[in-house]
Nucleic acid binder design. Sequence first.
DNA 1: TTGACTTGGTTGCAGATGCAACTAATACTG
DNA 2: CAGTATTAGTTGCATCTGCAACCAAGTCAA
Lengths: 161, 161
Amino acid sequence: MSDVPKQRETGQEFDLEGFLPYLLNQAAEATSRSFQASYKAEYGMTRTQWRVLANLGKFGAMTARDICRISHIEKTKVSRAVAALEAEGLLQRATSPEDRRAEILSLTDGGRRVFRDLGQRALAYDAELRKRLGDGVATQIDAVLRSIAAQGDPDVTPGDD
Amino acid sequence: MSDVPKQRETGQEFDLEGFLPYLLNQAAEATSRSFQASYKAEYGMTRTQWRVLANLGKFGAMTARDICRISHIEKTKVSRAVAALEAEGLLQRATSPEDRRAEILSLTDGGRRVFRDLGQRALAYDAELRKRLGDGVATQIDAVLRSIAAQGDPDVTPGDD
DNA sequence: TTGACTTGGTTGCAGATGCAACTAATACTG
DNA sequence: CAGTATTAGTTGCATCTGCAACCAAGTCAA
């Protein structure tokens, strides 16, 4: 950690604008932010809430823990998002019969309705974005991003979303 | 805003895992987080602080406003990061002679030292990541991400980092 | 010069987050 | 079955962030 293998200062200089974490963040923020308007303005939802809802909408009922695993969102965040969504009547909890610690989460009818609405918007937004990027890129980008997300750093704790 | 053009529910279903904002966030968080250890553990710096420092290190003295323009980080965030970095003795301010509202920011020797150190680590981290991605991808990804960051959404406010 | 408007930066405040500590239910192990 | 270690979720607390309101210096125009 502290034994940087004697890099000559004259080696190469750091270029912020070519630094992947930086570029990824810029791109991620730009897109998330612009789509954010959809769930924030109309439903007063948080990014995390939208994601939790999206996961439940997409994969069906499951526990908070499953959501953490699938989405890599930290459990605290999920916990609070679930509480908020429940308060809004968008999702329900049911103690798992097999493990009374776990709660099976599922969307209510209202939740599903919101999911359908936002899902359609997301689809439209995504399509538009990909169209601008061009087919060639659009088809490759997913795999690349998934790969980066997975590798990020091999030897580091799970982290969150 | 509320006139979703009659999308048949039966059209196509929303696939969270193919949603660019989602994928980008996963990738961005994964990389940023893992690199975060470098500046957080050793220098107790924040992501924003690291970015401000990186910008100053890379582009030299400039005003907070310039940093906002270049990095798209929101001005409040920059303001606080600058205050923190100054408190740590990593940067200095000097009232601009031409415009006394503006402050020319520049790294101190200590700041430059930290920049060199973190810059080298960033370089190493980035190189490793790109190596794993493979040359083909690595050379294209930058342009794509920049394009996404720029387009994100054409008609939306500047936003932040 | 005066008064209205813009611009560089800071601050107040209400959220949103991360991390560690904590509760409750389970799973092991002898 | 007791006793300890795990695991699902929640909560306290100390930041970090976003947005709007707010100064102070500048600009512009009458």
